[in-house]
Computed example of a mutant assay.
Amino acid sequence: MVLWRIANDESDAAWDQHLRAARDAVVFQSAGWAAFKAQAGWRPFRAVAQDDHGRVAAMVQFLVKRMPLGVTMAWAPGGPMWRFAEPVGEIRKEDWAGLFALLTSQMPCVLARIDSYEPESAGEPSPFGASVRRPRHRIGSGASIRFDIAGGEDAFVAGMSSKHRYYLRKGLAAPLRWEAGATDRDIAALVALHREMQTTKNLQSGALSEQTCRAMRDALGPDGMTIVTGYVDDRPVTACLTLDFADSAFYYLAATGAEGRKLSAAYAMLPRLVAALHAKGIRRLDFGGTAPDVSERAGVDHFKKGFGGEAVTYRGEWEAASLPLLAPAAGLLMKWRGITL
């Protein structure tokens, strides 16, 4: 049996220290991510479950925000965590009910939603019990591709499809120069490419600003972001950004301009990214999600799948509401407002 307690009084450093001990720790549960989202009006609500010996058995960071009509949204991207390097026993289904009881005791009109990045097996029952249910309107697909990059760049290339290796050779033959970092120059290049991509593809949403990227970098800290950029002469032609925490990285954003597409620059960029992450001690890379049921994303998903890796389905999104009609109403509001990670 475990006992949940509010952990809002813990320092950010102490929270991240606990999080690093989790087997599948993700950046979206970190104090740095909460600091970044605070700039958009979200505040962290942290809870920890401890066993009879005081050991941490589970932990979760909700991002909390007041919505219209007095509803509070509590959103836990990447959480909760309950697999640790030193196991402390199984969390029972009834233990999760204690978490949501703790949350509703603090927020009487709340919709709580978790988005677990714990992989699930086909046909495996939910570990969360009857205290939560699947939402009607999901924010993400719950599917992604994960890479073990402990073997570095060469092992990553060996896992690529033959067609992707063909385009890789084409990219390597191009006059590309690579830079890796998270400086203002790196951010400016990425934003310029993203703006070009939006204009070329006539995309109406998802605008990116240098100010937002700098704020994200500053909140996550000097090791929390990696940007890899490919240049021809001094012109950026392709770039990608990962968010890094502990030994894992999340592929957050990428953009390639018209010149870069002609050179197959994006195919050459991914091995460079793996090399940069490996040098930082990163051992796991999440390719930032796939969308198997969205036809408009088929091209992007095909690009991602060609690099190999392991296709995974996460346990994904589950929700609990303090009032019966709150979940469907708030779900529609989330879809309308476009709440994302």
Rank of each mutant, 00 (worst) to 15 (best):
A101C: 00
H53D: 09
A143E: 11
A49G: 07
G151H: 09
P77R: 07
R136V: 11
K65A: 07
K37P: 00
D51V: 06
L168A: 08
K163I: 06
F36K: 01
S126E: 04
S161F: 00
H53Y: 10
H53V: 04
F36M: 02
F84N: 05
D115V: 04
L168H: 11
G41T: 11
L63D: 09
M59D: 02
A85F: 07
A150D: 11
R169T: 04
Q39S: 13
F84C: 06
A150C: 14
G152Y: 09
A35P: 03
S121T: 13
E86L: 09
S161C: 04
A112W: 00
G78V: 08
R136N: 11
T72W: 14
G78M: 04
F147D: 01
G159W: 04
S162N: 15
D95G: 02
L168M: 14
A49D: 08
L168I: 09
P44W: 04
G70V: 13
V110R: 06
H53M: 09
D52T: 06
P135Y: 06
R169H: 09
A49F: 03
L99Y: 02
R92M: 04
E124M: 14
Q50P: 00
R169Y: 00
R83G: 03
A74C: 07
Q106M: 12
S144G: 09
P119T: 13
L63E: 14
P77F: 06
V48Q: 07
R83W: 04
E86M: 11
P80Y: 02
F84I: 07
R43Y: 11
Y166W: 11
G54C: 05
P135G: 08
L69M: 13
W75G: 10
F45N: 02
S131N: 04
A35Q: 14
A38R: 15
S105C: 08
W33L: 05
G151A: 14
E124G: 08
R136K: 07
S126R: 10
M160Y: 14
R165A: 11
G151L: 05
E90P: 00
M160F: 15
E153C: 13
G142I: 08
A122R: 14
R43Q: 13
S105E: 06
M73Y: 15
R55E: 09
W75Y: 15
D95S: 05
Q106D: 13
F36Q: 03
R133M: 12
